Computed example of a mutant assay.
Amino acid sequence: MTTRSLIIDCDPGVDDAVGLLLAFAAPGLELLAITTVGGNVPVEATARNARIMRQIAGREDVPVYAGAERPLVREPAGAGEFHGLEGTGDLTVFEPGAPMAQGHAVDAMIAIVMSRPAGEVALSVMGPMTNVALAMRKEPRLAAHLGCVVAMGGARSEGGNITASAEFNIWADPDAAAEVFASGCEMIVMGLDATHQVRATEDRIAAIEAIGTPAAEATASMLRFSHRIEREIVRGEDPPLHDPCTVAWLLKPELFTTRPCRIEVETASDLTRGHTAVEFRIDPATARHHWATKADGQGVFDLITAKLKAAAPQQGAVG
């Protein structure tokens, strides 16, 4: 089995936390680091939540670095109403046993990527792109040295989930996203067009819960919170599962259909701040961006269920 070297940059957040638990359970991923950023909740909470998921998964071997507290130029704007006050839904938070890694997430990202051969380290971006943009500013060679960047963010045909035209991760720091998209790195982008096809139905949640391990129970708890919030706030039905799609693509890309494109981000307009302009009318041979248009929702949940079930022997305690 081929192992993919990976850094996860995230802002847990319920769906980020589920994505982390999936990644921790996947032997096909060499997790080099988790880097956290302020987004869904403040960076102090995202760093703690990442360590909580690490402890639940029994993966204290993976270092967690705290990163940017705020967007490049905007005021911070969280999404606690969709993730709970602490960012983990109904899951009780606690102070994890293993500490943060020393140093800033941006410096860790640069050091890890640049110490490996070009193209070896992939990056999963589950939150605002602030850390990535800061790293690219500090080390201009980073974009060319990275492997593929698989990001959750943006919307095209589905419209936005924070404004009429913008998805939260891009809207939260559109200036950072614009820099990363313009950097020339290879990007696979999981926008709402694809993630809205991956829904946490009651049957899918129950299948995860039935595994009975700490990671599965934590996953089911957070998904049930999302299920309730989707009805209370969005007036929808089954909640979409956004950020884990980045990890799912890395593990099983055939679950998704992507199209070559060019993506630019709106930064000047308050009305359409964070809008992702996805242009398919380009030469595919020159494309650095690929936009996910379809996702196999059942396949993604089957993957999560299978990985959590297989990882059962290594998992730790909730608190």
Results as ranks from 00 to 15, higher is better:
residue 145 H to K: 07
residue 140 P to Q: 02
residue 174 P to C: 12
residue 150 V to A: 02
residue 160 G to Y: 01
residue 178 A to G: 03
residue 169 N to L: 13
residue 160 G to F: 00
residue 166 A to Q: 00
residue 152 M to N: 06
residue 171 W to Y: 13
residue 160 G to S: 10
residue 150 V to Q: 01
residue 177 A to F: 06
residue 167 E to N: 04
residue 157 S to E: 14
residue 167 E to M: 04
residue 171 W to H: 10
residue 171 W to T: 00
residue 163 T to K: 05
residue 142 L to F: 02
residue 168 F to G: 11
residue 174 P to E: 08
residue 165 S to R: 11
residue 156 R to S: 07
residue 155 A to Q: 00
residue 161 N to T: 02
residue 172 A to H: 11
residue 139 E to Q: 15
residue 139 E to A: 15
residue 170 I to Q: 05
residue 141 R to Q: 15
residue 158 E to N: 11
residue 152 M to G: 10
residue 172 A to K: 05
residue 151 A to Q: 05
residue 145 H to D: 03
residue 160 G to I: 01
residue 176 A to C: 09
residue 140 P to N: 10
residue 173 D to G: 10
residue 159 G to F: 06
residue 176 A to N: 08
residue 165 S to C: 13
residue 149 V to I: 13
residue 144 A to V: 11
residue 138 K to G: 10
residue 158 E to M: 14
residue 171 W to L: 00
residue 154 G to F: 01
residue 159 G to M: 06
residue 167 E to H: 04
residue 151 A to V: 10
residue 138 K to F: 09
residue 140 P to D: 11
residue 142 L to C: 12
residue 169 N to D: 15
residue 167 E to V: 03
residue 172 A to E: 07
residue 152 M to A: 12
residue 139 E to K: 09
residue 166 A to I: 00
residue 155 A to F: 10
residue 176 A to G: 07
residue 169 N to H: 14
residue 168 F to N: 09
residue 153 G to K: 01
residue 174 P to K: 03
residue 155 A to H: 03
residue 146 L to C: 09
residue 159 G to E: 06
residue 178 A to N: 03
residue 178 A to W: 08
residue 155 A to P: 08
residue 151 A to R: 01
residue 162 I to W: 06
residue 167 E to K: 06
residue 146 L to V: 09
residue 160 G to D: 05
residue 153 G to R: 08
residue 170 I to V: 15
residue 159 G to T: 08
residue 156 R to V: 06
residue 163 T to H: 04
residue 168 F to D: 08
residue 164 A to R: 11
residue 168 F to C: 10
residue 153 G to I: 04
residue 177 A to C: 11
residue 175 D to I: 14
residue 165 S to P: 03
residue 138 K to S: 14
residue 159 G to L: 06
residue 171 W to E: 04
residue 147 G to Q: 00
residue 176 A to M: 09
residue 143 A to Y: 00
residue 163 T to W: 12
residue 175 D to T: 14
residue 176 A to Q: 07
residue 154 G to L: 01
residue 168 F to A: 13
residue 148 C to K: 15
residue 168 F to Y: 15
residue 166 A to K: 00
residue 176 A to R: 04
residue 147 G to H: 05
residue 159 G to V: 04
residue 158 E to T: 14
residue 158 E to I: 05
